[in-house]
Write a protein that binds this DNA or RNA. Structure first.
Lengths: 185, 185
DNA sequence: CTCCTATATATGTTATATCCTATATTGTAT
DNA sequence: ATACAATATAGGATATAACATATATAGGAG
């Protein structure tokens, strides 16, 4: 469902092709809503059926025709309705936490390696976040007002805040393992 | 995939029925890996085909037979292999952040209401977390060593740390809205 | 006396998502 | 000379999940 609205959101900035949308996804919302290329095309087809978007073929020499999608009035209404509606709730799914939950099965050495792996992953993600502003820079000028940009940056702030909390947690666990504060079986 | 290992993990404590598993899920890992009842039964069927679990029918008077599943040697090996393997990575999906990303379409009043909704949700989740230790208490005695209990509590710690970071973020946004620090269109 | 909850399992349908592959052409790098 | 990346779209297969419903019985609340 959120994919539908994310696509409508991007189309509300300006008309785009599936290919364009994929690129925009990959530099912006991918960090909290990754989208497969084939999924974008299929969703575009469905949104067309629902009357939320319309398509115009733009012929090109040499390359396949571009199918440029634009949002319709009902589409814009649906988008604003969802945005202004109740806060979206989602069931969190975290495979890493499942590993932690049952990590008592492992030895202290294995657990230490696991948490050091987590910490490394989290640092890598924080490093990726650092590059986001530069990546969305081009789109910012082309597409967004300062107001829109502000909200884009809020999602980044949220990602950073969460990842820092996760890293601090992982580091505290590493400390406890090293200090022998983990109960033995 | 994680559901498979979560089920194997619980069965590694002691044999259980699908019904038992559902109850254990709902008081423990639900906060980071919710599982549908029908999904548990289907996964149990698949794990049986794979030879990771085996089932024994226990006849009961008056009620349907219990199908008690226990983990096999290959199942335990697969579990430990996954736990000790590379850190599980998962693509995060956050519908609320999609709403934030496109929230520039809304008025300041609507945005304020939205973030106050978020903050209320987060406080409710933190309140739920407070009750988790009491909920898993019974299982703790019956099933887990202090070592296992330690790792259970680590997942709770992680949830609390993340949710506090989220709440601080939401509150800081609310402040900025109230102080007129949000750029206008 | 009726309704709800608990115990216990299972299927059908739909939605969603992932992965792989196919098609077609141009430009760039090795 | 050849391979790879970019532009552009799309379908098949598979996996996962969500939601509703079905079966069957006992016990307690109102």
């Amino acid at each position: 469902m959120s994919l539908d609205f994310a696509i409508l959101g991007f189309l509300s900035y300006h008309p785009s092709t599936g290919y364009d949308l994929k690129k925009m996804f990959d530099v912006s919302v991918r960090h909290f809503w990754p989208a497969d290329q084939s999924q974008i095309y299929r969703t575009l087809a469905r949104l067309t059926e629902q009357g939320y978007v319309e398509m115009e073929k733009v012929a090109q020499e040499d390359r396949p025709d571009r199918k440029v999608y634009h949002i319709t009035q009902p589409g814009l209404a649906a988008l604003v309705n969802w945005l202004g509606g109740p806060p979206a709730m989602d069931e969190p799914r975290s495979a890493p936490l499942v590993q932690v939950f049952f990590a008592g099965k492992l030895s202290d050495e294995e657990v230490l390696a696991k948490f050091e792996g987590f910490a490394a992953m989290m640092r890598a993600i924080l490093a990726q976040y650092d590059q986001v502003p530069a990546q969305i820079g081009p789109y910012q000028q082309e597409v967004a007002s300062p107001r829109e940009h502000f909200f884009w940056m809020l999602t980044l702030e949220n990602g950073i805040a969460n990842m820092r909390a996760n890293l601090a947690w992982a580091e505290s666990v590493i400390e406890r393992i090293k200090n022998g504060q983990v109960p033995q079986a």
